[in-house]
Nucleic acid binder design. Structure first.
Lengths: 249, 249
DNA sequence: CTGCTTTTTGCGTTTTTGTGCGGGAATTTC
DNA sequence: GAAATTCCCGCACAAAAACGCAAAAAGCAG
């Protein structure tokens, strides 16, 4: 069998089944594993397949596009994300809501971190999925199309069964009087459940949202442990929250 | 034997078998390998064949096995998607697996369709989510990073609670003897559960996968109701499946 | 037929290419 | 952590290609 022929066969198999194992291929075509590996390497160099340990993956299947551009005040969110990531250590169970700040945090996770992330937010899950070492648990239920998050009683029930080490909430509005507030009833139910199921609750919020309110109440300041913003901890804007017993970073 | 004559013979052989070996040719025509090599070189220079180490390939060979566009046999998958979409009517509960064919189907859903789609496949969910009128239910559990689908006992349990009107399975391999087979144990468990929980089971498969097998068995032909390929229903390749009691489209 | 050029072919020799093998490093997996 | 795969690297070896050269064949004019 000619080399080109063999490579064509391999590529064909990859495209058909989205993945191939070198061990299987070498017994099918009756050549050494080295040869298969070299073929896969060449195909990978040409961009035809993605080589992985033990075989190869089809290229088309693996690239899921996500609309990453045009995030509002992304730099601030990056700052927040950096601070938030510092709270996560190996082996933790981490519960997260949705929202662009959470996504930014997902992107900032150090590659060597080994932890379990639980969420019902599709965009967040997409980010977690491409992380090499974290386990991803998806909360299932009906999907709310505008918030791109799973909502409903099943999702809430599933969250209540958990006990996470830490919970990160993307915040829509926070003020001293009303605590955390939001504008989507179903999302609020979710967040309430997440708060209940976590040992520690951390709110991520850009400074702009501080001292603003939304119609529906999520929880009071007494229920959150920490507030992370892009501001330095001694910023006067944060003073009232510190006084209310919230840690600030 | 004249040179022109010989080259014509070689070209004929190439077009007939899609490949020739120089070693074989030289013993057939009784000339030295150098002569064959020079002939192949000339034919290659004229663009008649593609010269490779050890022989030559026909040009059609390359067209067949190295698709120029991104997604493999996308046209076929579109055809299949069109047929599959015809089976869905308003108000239905539709259970789907993952795979590129399923995604193509998701993209082909008519905008005015109102139905409920249930899946654990992240890429599929992403497509459903952008549809204006369908409800999307996400099966939650641990995410398998390879297959981008939720897997595990919770997911299976959740599926078993359902009773869907119709179930679409992206197929990895199907043949008359082994039925539907696949190469990922966890995905197979999912598919089995989906089959059990659906009134009607439809397999989507490009013709190339027909009469091929993979290591792990999903189900026998008796458990599926319909097989959709890009072929016309009277194609001889489908005959054995019709005989086995499977409807074909 | 003869002498000449041009084309084609075959034959060593040298290079290049393709493949398998062994051992040690890296990785996955339990 | 330890065991089992898988990967990577260098090497050996065989098959094929490239190259130069010379012999054979073919074409051609006188």
């Amino acid at each position: 069998m000619l080399k080109k022929e063999r490579q064509a066969y391999i590529l064909h198999q990859v495209n058909l089944h989205n993945k191939v194992l070198s061990s299987l291929l070498c017994s099918e075509i009756n050549v050494s594993e080295d040869t298969i590996r070299r073929d896969l390497q060449e195909l990978a160099d040409e961009g035809k397949v993605i080589k992985v340990h033990g075989g190869a993956l089809s290229h088309s299947f693996n690239q899921v596009y996500f609309p990453t551009n045009g995030v509002y005040s992304q730099n601030h969110k990056k700052t927040i994300a950096e601070k938030a990531v510092g709270l996560i250590s190996n082996g933790m169970f981490v519960l997260t809501s949705g929202g662009t700040t959470i996504i930014e945090m997902a992107r900032s996770l150090p590659p060597q971190l080994k932890a379990t992330f639980i969420s019902g937010s599709i965009p967040a899950i997409l980010e977690y999925m491409y992380h090499p070492n974290i386990e991803v648990i998806l909360i299932g239920d009906k999907i709310s199309k505008n918030s791109k998050i799973t909502v409903g009683s099943k999702a809430i029930a599933k969250i209540k069964q958990l006990k996470a080490d830490i919970c990160f909430l993307g915040t829509n509005a926070i003020d001293v009087e009303h605590g955390i507030t939001d504008n989507d009833w179903e999302v609020v139910q979710l967040k309430r459940a997440m708060i209940e199921s976590s040992k520690m609750v951390v709110c991520l919020s850009i400074a702009e949202k501080i001292n603003s309110a939304q119609p529906i109440r999520v929880c009071g300041l007494d229920e959150i442990d920490m507030l992370i913003t892009e501001l330095p901890a001694n910023d006067p804007l944060l003073k009232p929250y510190i006084n209310a017993g919230v840690r600030v970073a």
